[in-house]
């Protein structure tokens, strides 16, 4: 028995050492490390240190779901453009909200040469996706000022919070849009537009909040996978609907002297 035991022990040890990383404890195990933690904060740091010009150019994608290969093509294409300031992923970087899908999505976006920011989408919240998002990307609602424009990222996935009346957080949105010295105009981005999944009780208040100070030059959202520009508010704020990544089309928005220019690029 001695020899056999030793051989088994030897092989077991070799097996363990060679297979480290394949051992999986749960589909819901969140143990992000390094560049998979605090991603939005890190990228914001990078963005605010870049040389700023008079034009802001943003490449949008979103709704990755299970189209991870297409996300790779998107990243490759964006890396060929010289003038992109940053990339916004409009949410649903995962299909099932699984930590592993978060790792895939962010793993591919890490290859972007420019900074990127990722919004929360409804699919990202299934299971323990909320914890995964917070751990990987940070706060669900956040904002920053870049070249005199305030960018407001808003969690509008009301249904995932059982229409609890606090999502989207209109008080927070209202505070963010309240005029102040550090910005002149604002851009509001969110995953889910009013419709199924967006709290119907908050829809009117949402539009009113956006229009309150006449300073929102654009809203951008995803969720519907197709592209269009439409004007649902009383004061005709352009709403830009961003392509799902599977269409292999991206929406690029240029902001110059508080005006927006929307174009689409195939990849």
């Amino acid at each position: 028995m001695g020899t056999t035991f030793k051989i088994i022990l030897l092989f077991s040890t070799m097996f363990l050492i060679s297979c480290e990383g394949l051992f999986d404890y749960s589909p819901y195990q969140i143990d992000f490390e390094g560049e998979n933690k605090g991603v939005n904060a890190t990228n914001l740091d990078r963005l605010l240190k870049t040389n700023q010009s008079d034009t802001i150019t943003i490449a949008f994608t979103g709704d990755t779901h299970n189209y991870f290969d297409e996300l790779v093509y998107f990243v490759d294409k964006v890396n060929t453009f010289p003038n992109i300031d940053f990339v916004i992923h409009i949410g649903d970087i995962t299909d099932f909200g699984l930590p592993k899908q978060y790792l895939w999505g962010n793993g591919y976006l890490l290859n972007l040469e420019v900074p990127y920011l990722v919004l929360i989408g409804n699919h990202d919240l299934v299971g323990n996706g909320l914890e995964a998002y917070k751990e990987m990307f940070g706060d669900l609602d956040f904002s920053f000022v870049y070249q005199d424009i305030k960018f407001v990222f808003l969690n509008t996935n009301s249904l995932e919070f059982a229409y609890n009346g606090n999502v989207p957080n209109l008080d927070w949105l209202s505070q963010q849009l309240f005029p102040s010295n550090d910005f002149s105009k604002a851009v509001v981005v969110f995953h889910m537009p009013p419709g199924i999944g967006f709290d119907p009780e908050l829809e009117l208040g949402f539009y009113q909040t956006l229009s309150a100070h006449n300073n929102v030059i654009m809203s951008v959202h995803g969720h519907q996978h197709h592209h269009e520009v439409y004007y649902p508010t009383a004061d005709s704020i352009p709403f830009v609907n961003v392509y799902g990544v599977e269409h292999r089309m991206m929406t690029i928005v240029k902001i110059y002297q508080d005006k927006i220019y929307v174009e689409n690029e195939a990849f």
């Binding site: 394949l22 299970n66 991870f68 290969d69 099932f96 899908q101 895939w104 591919y108």
Partner: peptide, 16 residues
């Protein structure tokens, strides 16, 4: 998740 995504390594979907 793996179907249609050659970019995802097979080792990523393995539970050993």
């Amino acid at each position: 998740s793996k179907v249609g995504n050659s970019s995802i390594p097979i080792t990523d979907i393995i539970e050993l």
